[in-house]
Simulated scan of single mutants.
Amino acid sequence: MTAMTTENDVSLTVGQAAEQTGVTVRTLHHYDEIGLLRPSGRTASGYRLYTAADLERMQQIVVYRRLGFSLEEVAELLADSDAVAHLQRQRQTVMARMAELGDLVESIDRALEAEMSGTTLTAAERRELFGESFDEEQREAQERWGDTAQWKQSAARTKRYTKEDWERLKAEQRGIFDRIVATFRSGAAPERTEAMDAVEEHRVFIDRWFYDCPREFQVKLGELYVADPRYGEGIAGEALEGLGNWIRDAIVANAAREG
Rank of each mutant, 00 (worst) to 15 (best):
Q16R: 01
E100C: 04
Y161I: 07
T13N: 11
E233P: 04
T21M: 05
Q153H: 02
G131V: 06
Q16F: 11
I247W: 07
A149V: 15
A182K: 07
Q218I: 03
E200V: 13
E72M: 00
V63G: 00
L169P: 03
L169S: 09
G175N: 12
R139E: 10
A75M: 05
D80P: 06
Q90P: 01
V94W: 00
R248S: 10
I61N: 05
V199A: 15
F134N: 06
V94K: 00
Y47K: 07
L55C: 00
T162G: 04
R208C: 14
G244C: 13
D207Y: 08
D178E: 13
D207F: 02
L121M: 12
V181C: 10
K220C: 03
T158P: 05
A156M: 08
A44V: 15
Q150N: 01
A155L: 05
V14M: 11
T183M: 03
A124I: 04
D212P: 13
Y31H: 02
T43A: 11
T120K: 07
T21S: 12
R174E: 14
R160V: 03
D228Y: 03
E132T: 13
L78F: 04
H86A: 04
A52L: 05
A79R: 02
R38Q: 11
D207L: 15
A111H: 09
R38P: 06
G131D: 08
R208F: 15
E106F: 05
G68M: 00
L121D: 07
S133W: 10
E164Q: 15
E143W: 07
R203K: 07
A141R: 08
E72S: 02
R57L: 12
E125Q: 13
D103Y: 10
E73F: 05
K220D: 11
K163N: 05
K170Q: 02
E136P: 01
R42A: 11
L71I: 12
V94I: 13
L169W: 09
W246V: 04
D109V: 02
L37V: 03
F177S: 14
M98F: 05
L12C: 06
R168L: 14
E128D: 15
V226C: 08
T119N: 06
G234V: 10
L112R: 06
E19S: 13
E76L: 07
Q153N: 07
A256Y: 03
S133Y: 10
L104Q: 06
V181S: 04
S45C: 12
A123F: 10
T119W: 08
G118C: 03
E128Y: 12
S45I: 13
A141Y: 09
L67P: 00
Y211A: 15
F184D: 04
M98R: 14
R185W: 00
T183E: 12
L49D: 03
R91S: 09
E172A: 04
V14E: 09
Y211P: 00
V62F: 08
Q88M: 11
E140Q: 07
R174Y: 09
E128F: 07
R203H: 15
E132R: 05
V181T: 02
V63T: 02
A3L: 12
V181K: 06
G131E: 06
A188T: 03
G131C: 02
A114P: 04
W209L: 09
E100I: 01
A99Q: 10
V23Y: 01
A111W: 06
E201S: 03
G222D: 10
Y161F: 14
E113F: 07
